[in-house]
Amino acid sequence: NLYFQGLKYMVPGARVTRGLDWKWRDQDGSPQGEGTVTGELHNGWIDVTWDAGGSNSYRMGAEGKFDLKLAP
């Protein structure tokens, strides 16, 4: 699974964008943008601060869902 392989790169400072299971509307800005991981992966959740200004926790394994992917 590509998403599980990418988890080791989901570290503080990593750049991310919305992924396969995104369901959080425009939390990442409008139009959709990139963000920066600000915390360690914990119980399948990870913290992100978006360039647009907001921050929140997103699923990276929790509930079998992956809200994020590494930015290109």
Rank of each mutant, 00 (worst) to 15 (best):
D67L: 02
G29I: 05
L41A: 08
D28Q: 05
M10A: 05
S30D: 14
L68G: 00
A71C: 12
D21Y: 05
L41H: 07
K23V: 12
K8Q: 13
V11F: 09
D21G: 05
N1T: 12
G39R: 10
K69R: 12
Q32K: 11
G6S: 14
K8H: 11
G19V: 07
L70H: 07
M60E: 01
F66Y: 11
W50G: 00
A52K: 09
T49E: 12
L2P: 15
K8T: 09
F4K: 11
Q27T: 06
D51C: 04
P12F: 10
K65R: 09
R25L: 14
G39A: 09
K65V: 04
S30Y: 12
A71V: 14
G64W: 08
T38R: 08
P31W: 07
S30G: 15
W50N: 00
P12R: 11
V16E: 01
V11G: 08
D51S: 03
M10P: 03
Y3T: 14
A14S: 09
N1L: 12
E40T: 13
Q27E: 13
R59S: 03
G19F: 06
G6N: 13
M60D: 00
V11T: 11
A62N: 07
D51L: 05
T17D: 01
V16D: 01
S55F: 12
T17V: 15
V16M: 01
D26V: 06
T49F: 08
S30Q: 13
G29L: 05
L20P: 14
K8D: 12
G19W: 06
V37S: 01
W24K: 04
E40C: 15
G33F: 06
L20N: 13
K65C: 15
G29D: 07
L68P: 02
A52S: 12
N56S: 10
G13K: 03
E34K: 12
H42E: 10
M10N: 00
E34G: 10
L2Q: 15
Q27P: 05
E34P: 14
P31V: 08
Q32Y: 11
A62F: 14
A52C: 14
Q27K: 05
S30M: 12
D21H: 11
G6M: 15
G64V: 04
L68M: 00
W50E: 00
D67Y: 02
S57L: 10
Y3R: 11
Q32E: 10
F66I: 05
N1F: 10
P12W: 09
A14L: 07
A14C: 14
T38K: 08
E34Y: 14
A71P: 04
R25F: 14
D21R: 05
L7F: 09
D51E: 05
V37T: 04
D26A: 08
K23P: 08
T36V: 10
V48T: 01
A62K: 04
